[in-house]
């Protein structure tokens, strides 16, 4: 009956934590010391090793939200919603950082923090959609309904991503084209590709570690909510029984005196 609460101690959690730690240290070493300086962009190019893996994780996170949301609407198992909401939260954190690091790279390279190009705009809109995902959860009191509505937003939001991307790109091509200096070009030295791969791996492990931890928390929260609901019910029952008992007692004592 009592709620669970198993944090950190599991093998999966420890394994992911160690894996993330080790690969992240290697990735950081490669980012700053192994990868060569970009001749065109200078040091700021190294933001790329942070930015690109985070962008990939952001999209992966929302893909997981999409799949888990469909699964929730079909199966109605709370477990799927726990996966979706954990992944969405971590995804929102990563998306925020993708936008921030992208802007900080854009300032010295493009000369501006923001360009209304397809990729940037899509990421920004994605961020707003998932903000809505959490807002609708927060504003609905009934948990089951909140899960259902959030799942709907998760599904529509993800399908919307390629559509937004396409519409913004079309809109751009029919607009005066801004001068966007494309980074690097296709000819990237092998050492940069290796660095990027290790960084991707590190961030993927980090993402799964965060989602895993967050899922345990959400699970425990749900179980605690169930528990306090059950306790409240039991208490209400007890109170009703007591009242009935009292009433019966009063009646019988009255009967005796009469």
């Amino acid at each position: 009956m009592s709620p669970g609460g198993r944090f950190g101690g599991s093998l999966t959690g420890i394994g992911l934590a160690i894996g993330t730690g080790v690969t992240m240290i290697v990735a950081l070493y490669m980012m700053f010391l192994y990868a060569p300086q970009d001749s065109m962009q200078g040091p700021v190019q190294r933001v790329f090793y942070l930015h690109l893996p985070m962008a990939w994780i952001a999209y992966l996170a929302f893909f997981i939200v999409f799949v888990a949301s469909i699964a929730y609407l079909v199966k109605r198992n709370r477990r799927w919603d726990q996966i979706a909401r954990s992944s969405a939260e971590v995804g929102l954190v990563f998306t925020t950082l993708v936008i921030i690091t992208g802007s900080l790279w854009g300032r010295p390279i493009w000369g501006t923090f923001w360009e209304w190009d397809a990729r940037l705009t899509t990421t920004l809109i994605l961020w707003f959609i998932y903000l809505g995902y959490f807002m609708i959860r927060a504003y609905i009191s009934d948990q089951e309904r909140a899960m259902r509505y959030a799942a709907v937003v998760g599904i529509i939001g993800f399908i919307d991503v390629p559509i937004i991307h396409m519409s913004v790109r079309w809109w751009r091509t029919l607009h005066p084209e801004p001068i966007v200096t494309q980074s690097g070009g296709p000819a990237m030295p092998d050492s940069m590709i290796y660095t990027l791969s290790v960084s991707m791996l590190a961030f993927t492990l980090f993402f799964f570690y965060l989602v895993y931890q967050k899922m345990l928390i959400e699970q425990a929260k749900d179980e605690l909510a169930d528990y306090s609901l059950a306790m409240a019910d039991a208490e209400a029952d007890a109170r009703t029984n007591q009242a009935i008992q009292q009433h019966a007692d009063e009646k019988s004592t009255k009967g005796v005196t009469a």
Binding site: F128, I136, Y139, S141, G157
Partner: peptide
């Protein structure tokens, strides 16, 4: 949006980004 506590806010928050295309 109608079954949330902040109806007037939730409708544009959901609709605007998704309907952008």
């Amino acid at each position: 949006a109608a079954s949330t506590r902040a109806r007037e806010v939730m409708l544009p928050v959901l609709l605007f980004p998704v309907a952008l295309p």
